[in-house]
Design a protein around this nucleic acid. Structure first.
Length: 563
RNA sequence: GGCCCCGUAGCUCAGGAGGAUAGAGCAGGAGUUUCCUAAACUCCGUGUCGCAGGUUCAAGUCCUGUCGGGGCCUCCA
């Protein structure tokens, strides 16, 4: 609705500029693109354009004069626009008629769950890769934040028409897996009463011992007889399978469903990784171009010329590929699967890798913006304002599962999504549990429950469940028009949040909408003796409920009927 | 040493692709319920937008420098 309105007004503006050109008032070649502002104050109208400034710059005239000349030529539909006026240094402000705003209501009621969706991304495939934690231990709170952001971002992109795939990259190859195997091996031996040195950098968490115990109960002492060299792989395979299973469980509980679980091992497949890599590189003639070269026995990728600080090793002199090699192969694989865009969501501690991976993508000949990397800052876990001590190395950390058990999915997801991802987040367990003013989740959910309650009461009072007959012109209070306006902007909020990868815009919007609703509710009765007015207000209430419900659903938070 | 992020009200943070007099939540104070859910509402805010320059008709927003906080640098994973 808003989108159409803007197009209509932009058209009218362009025509006005044309006429001003023809009449000789403006001497410009072509009409510039119309951009819209939403004024900060009601006195400045509902929509505002700064087109006069850009024209004025071109022809070196006073912006105010330009605005006046354009406004004088404006032919506007009085059903849509009450007035358009020149204000300040050269704004043209449009005052949209209440009737026009009200037309949003039938649209919302008709579209229901689809209200807010658009087709901007139609025909384009995006992959969102997130969480991707090593299967060497349980997910912690930080992973939870990444999960919430990745999942809602995927929802948002879907809502604006992209075809989206959620992927979890399982880092199941390399040194960490070996360390996992060694850790389990040590615990396994201990369980069976054999002296065993625990690896220096091993995983000390209690879950390793649990896995060792399961191993004992499943297989008894069988592995003690196997040569140590062979046991490590077996141990790490066994442990990672269990851990990955638990990761999947927690994510499901958290409401996150991946379309694909991509194994790093699978990336290399059966063949020798080094060979595989060389083959690919040759196909792309990277060696011929000098982008990949040997130096001191290692294979280097010349990322420096593509914006990295320095060149990077991809195959070490001991023939082992670095993680960078895996990352390169993995991203080649992504693009070969046909995604137009890959969005990686990483912990902020990996930010050092951004330039080198982007450089690699560029070197491989993919468009630079085909890869977008979103960094998620750390989560500081608090309890009653005091930091909760955590140390991954010592194996003491609060897991995502524990947080979920304590505060629940809705509060956790909502809080993770309230701040922009590049800003560190304080997550207070007491606050997340609190059913109080301090907890933003309940504020919004309560609004939804309230609206549901009104609609229930209306049904009891014999009001119809559809509002086609409602006389919406009765919604004349400033609060009502302002609420409708807010609803009309929802699709743009979704679009902005999706395109800028900023899910936090949704909770911010919800907070504002809920505040307006609560205030309206306390001031005016929806269901009254005036049946016509009641019906009109019920149509508004039903529309608000749809928008809150849709927005919460994008966040993966439930919209309760009762609280 | 190099790079990245952050610096906005007492606290936690927004600031929507440069725009008009910079906002919200919380904390603190005072009030509101015969009525659709008080998990709510109403009222109470003078901010060197870290600092200094610059670009622009217009800068919290862009550029440069600088100070403060956090993070990252490896033939580590």
């Amino acid at each position: 609705m808003l989108h159409r309105l803007k197009d209509t007004l932009a058209e009218a503006l362009k025509e006005a500029v044309q006429r001003a050109i023809q009449s000789g008032e403006l001497k410009i070649q072509e009409v510039p693109e119309i951009s819209w502002e939403t004024p900060s104050e009601a006195a400045f109208g509902d929509l505002s354009t700064t087109i006069a400034f850009s024209i004025a710059r071109e022809i070196k005239k006073n912006p105010r004069e330009v605005a006046t000349a354009v406004a004088a030529q404006l032919g506007l539909d009085p059903n849509l626009v009450e007035k358009a006026e020149v204000a300040g240094p050269g704004y043209i402000n449009f005052f949209i008629s209440p009737a026009c705003w009200r037309s949003a209501i039938p649209t919302i009621l008709a579209q229901g769950k689809d209200y807010g969706r658009s087709e901007v991304g139609k025909g384009r495939r995006v992959q969102v890769e997130f969480v991707s934690a090593n299967p060497t231990g349980p997910l912690h709170v930080g992973h939870g934040r990444g999960a919430a952001i990745g999942d809602s971002l995927a929802n948002l992109l879907q809502a604006v028409g992209f075809s989206v795939e959620r992927e979890y990259y399982i880092n199941d190859a390399g040194t960490q897996m070996e360390i996992l195997g060694r850790s389990v091996w040590a615990r396994y031996q201990e369980e069976l009463g054999r002296e065993a040195a625990f690896p220096e950098n091993g995983y000390k968490g209690g879950y390793i011992r649990d896995i060792a115990r399961r191993l004992v109960s499943d297989y008894g002492e069988r592995f003690l007889a196997v040569p140590e060299g062979e046991t490590i792989d077996l141990m790490s395979a066994y442990a990672s399978r269990i851990i990955l299973g638990e990761i999947k469980e927690v994510l499901e509980e958290f409401g996150v469903k991946f379309d694909s679980w991509f194994s790093e091992k699978g990336l290399y497949g059966e063949g020798d990784p080094l060979e595989k890599f060389r083959r690919f590189v040759q196909v792309r003639e990277l060696i011929a171009k000098g982008q990949i070269y040997e130096y001191e026995g290692a294979l280097w990728f010349g990322t420096a010329v593509f914006g990295d600080d320095k060149d990077r090793v991809i195959i070490r002199s001991n023939e082992a590929p670095t993680y960078f090699a895996s990352d390169i192969l993995y991203h080649i694989n992504k693009f070969e699967r046909g995604f137009d865009k890959a969005i990686d969501i990483w912990g902020a501690d990996h930010h050092g890798y951004v330039p080198r991976l982007k450089a690699a993508v560029k070197a491989l000949g993919y468009p630079p913006d085909a890869l977008e990397i979103l960094l998620v800052q750390l989560v500081r876990l608090l309890r009653g304002g005091r930091p909760v001590a955590m140390s991954t190395r010592a194996g003491e950390f609060v897991t995502l599962a524990e947080v979920l058990a304590e505060v629940g999915k809705d509060a956790a997801r909502y809080i993770f999504l309230t701040r922009r991802s590049d800003s560190p987040l304080d997550f207070d367990l007491e606050l997340a549990k609190a059913q109080s003013l301090e907890n933003p989740v309940y504020y919004v959910q309560y609004a939804h429950a309230r609206l549901s309650s009104i609609l229930r009461e209306a049904r009891k009072a014999g009001f119809p469940e559809t509002y086609g007959d409602a006389d919406l012109s009765l919604l004349s209070l400033p609060e009502e028009v302002s609420l409708i306006k807010k609803l009309a902007f929802y699709p743009e909020v979704v679009l902005g949040a999706a395109l800028f990868c900023e899910p936090h815009r949704i909770p911010a919007y919800l907070q504002e909408l809920a505040a307006q609703l609560h205030s309206y509710y306390n001031k005016h009765r929806v269901i009254s003796k005036d049946r016509a007015l009641s019906l009109a207000r019920l149509a508004l209430v039903a529309s608000i409920r749809i928008v809150i419900s849709n927005a919460l659903s994008v966040l993966g938070v439930t919209a309760p009927e009762r609280m």
